[in-house]
């Protein structure tokens, strides 16, 4: 038995990746939940919004790289991120003006808006593939590791190593900053409060003199920022591929629903719930168990519950369990 090594292995393969992935999901789910709360529909185009923002960021990253600009150990993409956000904001505001606004004025039923978002999804998906192509793009540069396996071993003298990728560190730090800023905005500023008021009770918000178009516009701006940040972090951590981003829709929706649609806090909790379950269920526990259990009990097989190809199944099963036993989600969202 060697609990220390077991814990290090666990951290290396489960905890750290899950925290990073959870942060990315949480940021994505925050966008979905904000649109659901304010505009009152589930936005199927969210994955592709993330892809678009990331694509713009990648294009700027390439531009900066060609100029020789860099941030040293930190990926150049962070420098390009604000431009990606701006690009994404422009796209979303444009979409809102030419597409969604009409249906809002018609007071269309939410499900119509969902179908409209399918159309937007097609267009954004096509746009991204048209501009950058359907292939994998890696755009991470700079230092690869904050702590590499080797330095960790040398530092601690342990048998097992622990690596923290730069992208993972950046993901967590960025996510914390973004989430803190978002909550500060929603809970402390007049505009943020007016958004919450509008989400809570549209008629009363109108009576209080809150301008709905302004609320909607700010929502799109925030969603653009969240989606781009989430997309870029995911792309840095793994890689950018339009189809993968489209597929992220499922875990992101699952996170938002598990947490309770419309509840920002829930979106974060949901993101981490889904990420941890996905990573833990698809991780081969052999090594950890080998350290943690007495030798006689150590498993022969990989001790993997499900192959990684079934990670969608994990988010789905968790989603089902939550829906069956607590339909409003962990943090009671809008049960409209």
């Amino acid at each position: 038995m060697d609990l220390l090594n077991a814990f290090v292995t666990l951290s290396n393969f489960v905890l750290i990746p899950a925290i990073a992935y959870g942060s990315q999901l949480a940021l994505g789910a925050l966008g979905v939940t904000l649109i659901y709360g304010i505009l009152r529909f589930s936005n199927f185009a969210h994955g592709d919004t993330m892809a678009f923002g990331t694509m713009v960021t990648i294009l700027f990253t390439w531009l900066f790289q060609s100029w020789g600009l860099s941030l040293g150990p930190v990926p150049t993409a962070l420098l390009a991120l604000p431009f990606g956000i701006l690009g994404c904001m422009a796209l979303l505001l444009f979409t809102d003006r030419v597409v969604y606004k009409f249906y809002r004025e018609q007071k269309a039923k939410p499900v119509i808006l969902v179908i409209v978002s399918l159309g937007v999804m097609f267009i954004m998906n096509g746009l991204v593939r048209f501009i950058i192509g359907p292939d994998d793009q890696r755009f991470s540069d700079g230092e690869r590791f904050i702590v590499s396996v080797r330095t960790f071993r040398e530092m601690t003298g342990l048998e097992e190593g622990l690596a923290i990728k730069t992208t993972q560190g950046i993901t967590v730090i960025t996510a914390v900053i973004v989430v803190a800023a978002l909550f500060w905005f929603l809970n402390r500023t007049r505009t943020g409060k007016s958004m919450r008021a509008y989400s809570d009770n549209e008629d009363l918000a109108l009576l209080s003199g809150i301008n709905p178009e302004r609320v909607v516009m700010i929502t799109w701006l925030i969603v653009a920022a969240l989606a781009t940040v989430a997309g870029v972090l995911y792309g840095l951590d793994k890689s950018f591929k339009p189809f993968t981003y489209f597929q992220l829709l499922l875990p992101i929706f699952a996170s938002a629903i598990v947490g309770g649609l419309g509840s920002p806090l829930g979106a974060i909790a949901g993101g981490f719930t889904i990420a941890f379950s996905e990573v833990m269920v698809t991780y081969a526990w052999k090594k950890v168990a080998g350290y943690a259990l007495p030798e006689s009990l150590a498993p022969d097989g990989l001790a993997q519950l499900l192959s990684t190809d079934y990670k969608f199944a994990v988010s789905f099963v968790i989603l089902l369990i939550v829906l069956l036993f607590r339909p409003t989600g962990l943090f009671a969202g809008k049960s409209v």
Binding site: K193, R196, D200, N201, D203, L204
Partner: peptide, 11 residues
């Protein structure tokens, strides 16, 4: 003051 839903319940 409307008759129903006249407050922001979540705030």
């Amino acid at each position: 003051v409307p008759q129903t839903s006249n407050i922001f319940t979540s705030m």
